[in-house]
Design a protein around this nucleic acid. Structure first.
Length: 223
DNA sequence: GAGAGAATAT
DNA sequence: CATATTCTCT
């Protein structure tokens, strides 16, 4: 009955305060402009096939940051040429970040960038799902980030688990090591012990905020 | 076949 | 190094 858990979740959700921060403050105006990101506007049809979309409340659909990697060397890649007109008229409708992401245009998939905010969402999702339920598919669902794939999460999850293992096990969990995120921002565990492995989170009521802090992860400036 | 997780690859 | 891709196993 994870539905019950989800219910608790929703109950304790901050009214579009913390769970929606994956907006634009991460991306510089210039960058946003360059990418034609929809700043301040969530112009997307959140057609969630799931009735229980916990995070699908406000406008969680964040934009992944996909740096348009342009490898102009002799790359023997299969370039799917899409005979599109040069005029960029389509992005008007798609909005978001269809600029470089493979989904929108061009056939090359840019590497995803786990911004601190995205990672935050990720961590929250993992925490709330618990050790048992924190599998890529569920995480993707909870995060509800447009364009985020299961593979993306799987990869990040792998790294995340290694990170947790490193900071907990070895005889050096003295100083909480920051989880390296993009831009030099990191999430560092406040307490010596990171999110527990077995005892997860049935965060009671809206103590969620408290609990989240108690279990670590606050944003810092430098590693 | 789908999906998770670890091993590789880029 | 961070993310992607591939592979194995369930």
């Amino acid at each position: 009955m994870d539905a019950g858990r989800v219910a608790e979740w929703e109950a304790g959700l901050p009214a579009a305060s913390e769970l929606t921060p994956v907006s634009h403050p991460l991306i510089t105006p210039a960058l946003a402009a360059a990418f034609r990101i929809n700043i301040g506007g969530g112009a997307f049809a959140a057609a969630s096939p799931f009735d229980d979309s916990p995070l699908a409340h406000d406008s969680p659909t964040s934009h992944l940051s996909f740096p348009c990697d342009d490898e102009d060397d002799d790359e023997e890649e299969e370039v799917e040429e899409v005979g599109e007109g040069e005029g960029e008229t389509e992005d008007a409708a798609s909005g978001s970040f269809g600029a470089c992401q493979g989904a929108g245009r061009a056939g090359k998939k840019a590497r995803m960038v786990w911004t601190p905010e995205l990672h935050h969402r990720f961590v929250e999702a993992v925490a709330h799902l618990g050790d048992k339920g924190a599998v890529p598919k569920a995480i993707v669902r909870l995060m509800n980030v447009e364009g985020l794939t299961r593979e993306n999460v799987a990869s990040h999850l792998q790294k995340y688990r290694i990170y947790l293992k490193r900071t907990r096990n070895p005889a050096a969990p003295q100083h909480p090591q920051p989880f390296p995120t993009a831009y030099g921002s990191s999430f560092v565990p406040q307490t010596s012990d990171a999110p527990s492995r077995s005892d997860y989170c049935a965060f009671p009521s809206r103590e969620r905020d408290r609990a989240l802090q108690a279990m670590g992860w606050k944003r810092t400036k430098d590693a």
